[in-house]
Amino acid sequence: MAATKEEIIAGLADIVNEIAGIPNDEVTEEKSFTDDLDVDSLSMVEVVVAAEERFGVKIPDDDVRGLKTVGDAVTYIAEHQS
């Protein structure tokens, strides 16, 4: 069953917390992974791989570049999850 938007945000918050140590409640849609959440380009790959596993999506490298904010990722996952 597809995850809801809220479930995706909560899942991403867990992932960002694990990888970058940012408190879950600070991981909100308008936040930039790089500028606000201490996720550099290498850690972004970790976030993407963890998200792929958690939500059953494939996020090709070319699409990762478009995921600037948490909101971008939520939209992408919502549209692509099976």
Binding site: E18, I19, A20, G21, D38, L42, S43, E46
Partner: peptide
């Protein structure tokens, strides 16, 4: 050390 640093 904090966990994010341990991963890297």
């Amino acid at each position: 050390l904090p966990r994010p640093l341990l991963r890297r």
